[in-house]
């Protein structure tokens, strides 16, 4: 057994029932080299303060619920290791650009509304009956959108994008990546409806190509590229709609 090492974890606490504003608290947490920041936070809850609130589930970077600002950078706390920071202090804060509900839990209702608005499901071009069989898709057609299906809705990209806070109605990188995912699907016929949203004042032009969303994405979805591709798509439609109206956009 190696000797017990201690890491200082500074947590931004916010207790809506008693605090006017968030404040920092520092905890000294014993850790082993295989411990993630999430496990460090769990240690605090189990041993120091049971009221510490945070979201987590899978511990393997696929559920997308344990995102936190770790030393100011949006990360999944389950795949971020304490050993990489030791002996420096680790600061942990709720994901930026979202309202803090309590401690490390943010209010995601705005994001959920945006996610619903982009209609993240296939709207069939031509509804088929069971008898007519399945929707056929070639590997090349599948390759068009596969990258965007990797999104786990962890919203790290929103915590990376200043515009999601500066313009709270902005659809944002993650939802735009999913919008693009369905638009690029050969089975889908909902593009016109979705582009109405992308081309609106809440849409893609709120983005100024900061690009940090794609940097922090743990699944390499590249939501920033999805947003920017749709600036071109919406821009083409803006100028060409008089020549070849496709409907949908008003």
């Amino acid at each position: 057994m190696s000797e017990q090492k201690i890491i200082e974890i500074e947590v931004l606490r916010y207790l809506p029932e008693s605090d006017q504003a968030p404040h920092s608290e520092v905890y000294k947490v014993p850790f082993t080299d295989d411990m993630s920041v999430l496990q460090g936070v769990q240690y605090i809850k189990d041993n120091f303060d049971g009221s510490l609130t945070f979201r987590w589930s899978c511990r393997m970077a696929i559920c997308g619920s344990c995102g936190m600002m770790i030393n100011g950078i949006p990360k999944l706390s389950c795949e971020t290791f304490i050993r990489d920071y030791y002996p420096q202090r680790i600061s942990v804060e709720a994901l930026a650009h979202f309202p803090i509900e309590k401690d490390l839990v943010v209010d995601l209702s705005g994001f959920i509304e945006k996610l619903e608005a982009i209609q993240p499901y296939i709207i069939p071009k031509e509804p088929r009956t069971v008898e007519e069989g399945e929707y056929i898709q070639t590997p090349a057609q599948f390759a068009e959108y596969i990258q965007y299906t990797s999104c786990i809705n962890c919203v790290l990209c929103y915590a990376a994008c200043p515009h999601t806070a500066l313009s709270p109605d902005f659809i944002g990188p993650g939802a735009m990546a999913l919008l693009h995912r369905y638009n690029m699907d050969s089975r889908d016929g909902g593009k016109a409806q979705r582009m109405e949203l992308a081309a609106s004042e809440d849409g893609v032009y709120n983005c100024s190509a900061v690009g940090y969303c794609s940097e922090v994405c743990p699944k390499k979805v590249d939501p920033g590229n999805a947003v920017n591709i749709n600036k071109i798509n919406a821009g083409m439609d803006y100028f060409l709609r008089f020549l070849s109206p496709k409907g949908g956009a008003k």
Binding site: A117, E196, L197, A199, S200, E201, D202, G203, Y205, K231, A234, G235, Y238, F239, A249, K250
Partner: peptide
């Protein structure tokens, strides 16, 4: 569903 206005940004973004 919320009705959204089409943005005129393509003009400025294009330039």
């Amino acid at each position: 569903m919320k009705t959204r206005k089409r943005s005129n940004a393509p003009i400025f973004w294009g330039l």
